[in-house]
Design a protein around this nucleic acid. Structure first.
Length: 609
RNA sequence: UGCCCGAUGGUGUAACGGUAGCACAGCAGACUCUGAAUCUGUUUGUCAUGGUUCAAAUCCAUGUCGGGCAGCCA
């Protein structure tokens, strides 16, 4: 069994899963049916990953289905680029885990008019389960239901539960704030129907009229104060083209999309909690013949050292503060993937943080731990030197090369071994030599000994410097009996360091990524903290906390086996970090991204002084 | 301001009227041919005040603090 298919830890329990489990026990529904409904107006981020893992996790654990649906009712903000990235990201995240629960539909399929329980109904039929979306299948689109939503709106008007309103946007706001009835509230159903038809036919400009649900303008919950359910937008839609100039609002489209698809559990984030009465109102006022979906809310994810809002992420992209949506420093799923994080690690993280209604702030260390735990098990060990310093072994024959055995992964016997060339001239890490060593520094120092991993114990005899005092070379002698497996191999020296043979090393462009922000809560940053004490954070202030050193590029010296590195594999440069191939690489040009460093207890110790 | 929701160690979560547990982080140690991993130990917690009860993190009331909503965005 490969790591990709390895099951993630025991299914968690939370208040939503408890509800679902109860419904399953009661046999309340023939099948549990969730959905993941992003708006295609940006790339998915790690907060969406939490939602994906919840919705697909429930489908996975309770034998259900989870539809992927584009919540695309606002043509102004949405784009096919985003649709495609969403499909790619979801498929990547659920691959080998819940891809058999992914609900799709045949391309172009729209809801059918059927009879359910003796009454007319719109229903899409059962979702198609298929892990290959390219196979004539596509995700669901709220925009595929525009015909049906229009019919539902007409039905509401005919029942006296909706009316066309001519108030301007400002007036609408004012009336709603003051709990005042619109003067158009009591116009006849016939007149509303006529005006709604003409809205649809394009007779009015944007903003001229709206369709509103007739509920209760004095309701304490403002979303019940005759909310808008349709507005005029003369704009092409990425999926329906120029067919429509009126578009349904979220509240109207979402609950009915859930219904049309046969969703049982409609799970969303906390900010929609106040919308739930409206969700229920619309569904219960349309005399729908099948069981109604129900909405449940959980807290969205916040992470330290991260911004999560699509607006801010878009700003980073637009202002070229990162290289794109998939910049490995971005908290987007595509960025995280490019950074080298396996989907299994992201899923483990999502499971570990749990689901509640408390708006907390999760320490990014929890994510980092999940990544390290995953990578430790799968990464192939390699020797590579990021910042080289030359070492010459004066007692080792010139021109001699040995092939030394090296373990590919101590956590996985099946990963096997490889050969590493060893010779008289080597590179070691600058950090692994100190001319004036501090007490607990047990790496290489003048007259000190250190083990070269898989090779010999060496002793530093001489430090060679250039005219300005920079170290150019270390001249060392090797204990030629101390080679791994040799007579004095068990001689104890405190330190072991990594190295590469200078003559055999290959170069790689290595991108050392660090956190994008320097403070735990960039959203709370105040740019002008000096001049305006206790100032409220302003919309753009988060950019003042960007980490200037979030990317450093070095040319590393790597052991030659790395020329065969594969994009689907992960590598650990021993004692340093985990790496993955970047798409910018080419045959003969190695480009690696640092996914995450190894834990570095020494760095912490050294900082203490 | 109105409405809604929430509050358990530093952080995130569990305990569903009956011993406050887990993970991350931290600290200390063991081991180590990766200062990684692994292993051991360990500091720190039920927002407050009342009430119900043999018994309250859990139920009730009030307060405090925090979050959300008040777009013709989702």
């Amino acid at each position: 069994m490969s790591l990709e298919n390895k099951e993630i830890p025991a299914a968690p329990s939370d208040f939503i899963r408890d509800i679902v489990a109860q419904h399953v026990a009661e046999k309340k529904y023939p099948q549990i049916h969730t959905r993941f409904p992003p708006e295609p107006n940006g790339y998915l981020h790690i907060g969406h990953a939490k939602s994906i893992c919840l919705n697909f996790g429930i489908a996975h654990e309770f034998g259900g289905v989870c539809n992927l649906r584009m919540d695309d009712t606002n043509p102004a903000k949405e784009d096919v680029e985003y649709v495609n990235s969403i499909i790619e990201d979801v498929n990547w995240l659920i691959a080998g885990w819940a891809d058999d629960k992914l609900g799709l539909k045949p391309k172009g399929k729209t809801p059918e008019t059927v009879t359910s329980n003796g009454r007319p109904d719109f229903y899409l039929g059962h979702s198609t389960l298929n892990p290959q979306p390219s196979n004539g299948l596509e995700p669901f689109y709220a925009s595929d239901y525009f015909d049906q939503l229009y019919e539902y709106a007409v039905a509401l008007i005919k029942k006296g539960n909706a009316y066309v309103c001519d108030l301007t946007p400002d007036e609408t706001d004012e009336y709603r704030r003051n709990a005042k009835e619109s003067p158009f509230r009591n116009r006849s159903g016939e007149e509303s129907l006529d005006l709604f038809t003409r809205m649809k036919n394009g007779e009015f400009p944007d903003g001229k009229r709206t369709l509103r649900a007739k509920i209760d303008v004095t309701a304490p919950n403002v979303w019940m104060r005759d909310p808008l359910i349709y507005r005029i937008r003369h704009a092409d839609h990425h999926h329906t083209g120029g067919k429509w100039c009126i578009y349904p609002m979220y509240d109207f489209a979402h609950c009915l999309s859930d219904y049309i698809e046969g969703i049982t559990h409609s799970i969303c984030t906390l900010e929609f909690e106040v919308h739930r009465p409206l969700y229920d109102w619309i569904l219960t006022h349309l005399d729908l013949p099948r069981p109604l979906p129900h909405q449940y809310e959980f807290a969205r994810l916040s992470l330290t050292y991260t911004v999560m809002s699509k607006r801010k992420l878009l700003q980073l992209v637009d202002e070229k503060l990162v290289t794109g949506w998939d910049d490995p420093r971005m908290p987007t799923i595509s960025g995280i993937r490019r950074r080298g994080v396996p989907a299994t690690a992201l899923r483990a993280f999502a499971y570990n943080i749990g689901i509640t209604k408390y708006n907390g702030l999760t320490d990014v260390a929890v994510l980092e731990h999940a990544i390290r735990e995953d990578l430790n098990k799968r990464a192939l060990r390699r020797l590579a030197v990021l910042r080289p310093i030359k070492v010459v072994l004066t007692n080792y024959p010139e021109g001699k090369t040995e092939e030394l055995d090296a373990v590919n992964n101590p956590e996985d016997e099946n990963a096997g071994k490889r050969k590493i060339p060893f010779s008289r001239e080597l590179f070691i890490e600058q950090d692994d030599f100190k001319e004036v060593a501090v007490p607990k520094f047990f790496r290489l120092k003048p007259s000190g000994e250190v083990r070269l991993k898989y090779a010999y114990i060496i002793k530093c005899d001489e430090v060679v410097k250039d005219a300005v005092g920079n170290i150019t070379e270390l001249r060392c002698t090797a204990d030629l009996d101390s080679k791994t497996g040799g007579p004095t191999a068990n001689r104890k020296v405190k330190g072991t360091i990594h190295w590469v043979s200078a003559a055999h090393a290959i170069d790689a462009e290595v991108r050392l990524y660090d956190r994008l922000f320097t403070v735990p809560e960039p959203d709370k940053a105040t740019a002008a903290a000096g001049s305006e004490l206790s100032a409220e954070p302003r919309a753009n202030d988060f950019k003042s906390t960007l980490n200037a050193h979030s990317l450093e590029v070095v040319t590393a010296k790597c052991e030659p086996s790395l020329k065969d590195a594969k994009p689907e594999l992960r590598y650990q440069f021993e004692r340093l970090a985990y790496f993955a191939l970047d798409k910018d690489g080419a045959p003969g040009k190695l480009v690696l991204n640092r996914t995450i460093t190894l834990k570095d207890t020494w760095a912490k110790e050294a900082q203490k002084g």
